[in-house]
Amino acid sequence: MLTRTGAAMACTAVGLVALGGWADYPELVVLGLGAAATLLVASAWLFVSPRLTVVREVQPHRVFEGNTARGTLTVTNIGRRRSPGLLVTETVAGHRTTVPVPALAAGGSCTAGYPLPITRRGRYLIPAVEVGHSDPLRLLHRGHARGGELVVHVYPRVHPLAMITAGGPHDAEGPTVNSAPLGGVAFHSLREYVPGDDWRHIHWGATARTGTVMARHVVVPDEPRQLVVFDTSSASYPGTLFEDAVRVTASFCVAAEKAGLPFELRTTGARQPGPSALEFLSTVDGDRTGVGLAGLSDLVRDVVADSQGVALTVVTGQVGDEAAQLLMSLRSRFLSVSLAQLVTADPGTRPRGVLAVAAPGSEQFAADWNRLVLR
């Protein structure tokens, strides 16, 4: 491929030959042919590619907004002759980063590190790097793709949030249910021994009375669950407040995880989170056709508060009278209901019996929330 210098050289060669022929000026023709010959020599220089191995690593593959991810390239010359200086080009989200690699002797290697230009949340598909070299005059450039594709997730920025622990009991011997997962320490009931059960769970008294080997059925206690509902309707957020709402939602999820509380994330849009809430939030977009909080009743219909102990947190923008009435009607189904609003003006109606905090940004919301919860 011609570089800018090579393109100028090619145009000069054509122009000199044409001008020399038109003006019957052989010296110009000779100069033009000399320029063309230089391009041919540069082509011959690039005909033989150096034998190289390129190892690329990106750390970390998952990073929060505001933090940096770095790429590392290790280039090794496995050929028998010295390799020329190289230019390794990394393309991320349309941004090209060029890393120079010096000439390498046979068997020599070089490692270079560089920051990746990923500052906004998202899922970045990083294609294979391009390893290229040029002739000594930089007239031509030849590149080859090396390595495979990599994926880097940039999670939303999170702020430390205090959790409301009114969502139910949180101790080793809390209430249990039949559907609770095995492997905990809370006693739920007695049942017949099943091959593979821990023999230490055998209840010898019950075994002697019934004549059947009985074992203690121990499960994980019914811990309080946190249900976070994120309103993804674009109409709920003016300006750039949708990004702040994403950060607040991520902050609630991370706070629940750090507190050891089971949590679930749901959205008012058609697209629902998968196993990883943060990976979902790294790519979620505002839903222009979403119904917003109008569909909240259907979204939480399967949640039964009195048997599961669920605390509901709703992240949204402006809340009208209709949505406020809906939140108040749902209050009896949950042990607590919290409302996080990202607004630039008066938040409007505040639902009774609901812990509501409104702020014009995620950082201010975190400060106001912690001040209210921790007081």
Score class of each variant (00 low, 15 high):
44 A>F: 07
147 G>A: 13
28 L>W: 07
188 H>M: 13
294 A>S: 15
34 G>D: 14
109 S>K: 04
92 V>R: 07
203 H>V: 12
354 V>G: 06
21 G>L: 10
315 V>D: 01
362 S>E: 01
184 G>D: 07
183 G>V: 06
340 A>F: 09
176 T>D: 04
241 L>G: 14
205 G>C: 12
41 V>A: 01
52 L>H: 00
71 G>S: 09
17 V>P: 08
369 W>Q: 08
330 L>V: 14
112 A>R: 13
169 P>T: 10
318 Q>F: 00
340 A>M: 10
134 S>Q: 13
149 E>S: 10
287 D>Y: 02
321 D>G: 11
298 D>M: 12
61 H>G: 14
289 T>E: 15
13 A>Q: 08
58 V>Q: 01
35 A>I: 11
185 V>Y: 01
346 D>C: 09
353 G>C: 09
101 V>C: 04
164 I>W: 02
157 R>H: 13
311 A>N: 08
21 G>Y: 03
165 T>V: 13
57 E>C: 06
301 R>P: 09
253 C>D: 04
301 R>M: 05
62 R>T: 09
181 P>F: 01
89 T>S: 12
190 L>N: 08
326 L>D: 04
164 I>D: 15
170 H>R: 04
150 L>H: 10
312 L>T: 02
372 L>M: 01
263 F>I: 14
32 G>I: 11
119 T>D: 06
65 E>D: 14
75 V>G: 06
48 V>T: 14
45 W>K: 04
175 P>V: 05
160 P>E: 01
240 T>F: 00
101 V>T: 03
192 E>G: 11
88 V>G: 08
340 A>E: 03
56 R>P: 10
68 T>A: 09
109 S>M: 11
